[in-house]
Computed example of a mutant assay.
Amino acid sequence: MLKTHHGSCHCGAVKFEADIDLAAGTGKCNCSICTKKRNWSAQIKPDAFRLLTDPAGCGDYQFGSNSAHHIFCKTCGVSPFGHGYVEEIGGAYYSVSIACLDDLTPAEMAALPVQYMDGADNLWWNPPAVTAHL
């Protein structure tokens, strides 16, 4: 079910709202940045995302193909969302960090469906052999 969720970084300098159907699934990837950040996210289309604070408080990190913007709070360093364009996944997207959604309880998070992706080997549509660390 589509629901408007509210989220933020740790210090609250970056706040957003996003329309997400969490029952449709969330994702964890084993690529280099997702592994280091222990990223757990839900992808949505850009029109389902609204930044509620001044974008000047956000930093932007890119690497590799520069197709993804890894956004982080300049104050606390937490990465509440990212965005980019990848044709293979439907074009423009926003990726919202599940851990930064302020209106989910731990029990609700634990019940969410998770899809694992092998980004380390560029086999995004397949789960990696080992997922326990993700």
Rank of each mutant, 00 (worst) to 15 (best):
Q43K: 13
H5N: 02
L51G: 02
S97T: 10
D21S: 09
E87N: 06
K45N: 05
V114E: 03
Y61Q: 06
A110I: 04
N39P: 05
R38Y: 04
F49G: 02
H5D: 02
F16R: 07
P127T: 10
W40K: 10
G77T: 05
C76N: 11
V78A: 12
A18V: 08
I98T: 05
C73Q: 09
C11T: 12
D121K: 15
P46W: 01
S97W: 00
K28E: 02
Y93A: 09
L123N: 15
D102W: 00
C9D: 04
Y93H: 12
H5M: 03
N122S: 15
G59W: 09
G91A: 15
G12S: 11
E108G: 01
A24W: 03
P46M: 06
Y61N: 06
S97V: 03
C34N: 07
G25R: 10
K45S: 13
H83E: 04
C29R: 07
C100R: 07
T26W: 05
A92G: 08
K3P: 01
M109Q: 12
D118C: 13
G82R: 04
G57Q: 09
T105Q: 03
S95P: 00
A132E: 15
A110Y: 04
H10K: 08
L104W: 03
A42N: 04
K37W: 02
S79T: 13
T4P: 01
H133F: 15
W40C: 13
F16P: 01
A99R: 13
C31I: 08
L2C: 00
C11E: 10
A107I: 06
T4L: 11
S65P: 00
W125K: 15
H6P: 00
A48R: 13
V78Q: 09
M117W: 04
E17N: 11
H6Y: 11
E88N: 13
V14L: 15
K28P: 05
T35A: 01
H70L: 07
I20G: 05
I89D: 05
S95E: 13
P46Q: 10
K36C: 00
N30Y: 06
Q115T: 15
P46T: 09
N122R: 14
N126E: 15
L112F: 03
P128L: 09
K45P: 08
M109I: 15
A110S: 10
D19V: 14
A99E: 12
A110P: 07
A13H: 14
L112K: 02
I33E: 03
A24F: 04
D54K: 01
R38V: 13
Y94S: 06
S79N: 15
P128A: 12
G90C: 07
Q43W: 10
T131M: 12
S67A: 06
T131L: 14
G59I: 03
A23Y: 03
S95V: 06
T53S: 12
A13L: 08
S97Q: 14
D21K: 10
V130T: 11
P80V: 05
D103A: 02
V96A: 10
C73V: 09
R38D: 09
S8W: 00
V86H: 12
H83M: 12
K15F: 03
W40H: 14
V86L: 14
A48W: 00
C31W: 04
L52W: 07
G12D: 00
A56V: 01
K28G: 00
Y93K: 07
H70S: 02
Y93T: 05
K74C: 08
T105I: 05
W125I: 11
S32A: 07
H5C: 02
D121V: 08
C9R: 09
E108P: 00
V130E: 11
P46A: 01
I20W: 07
E17W: 02
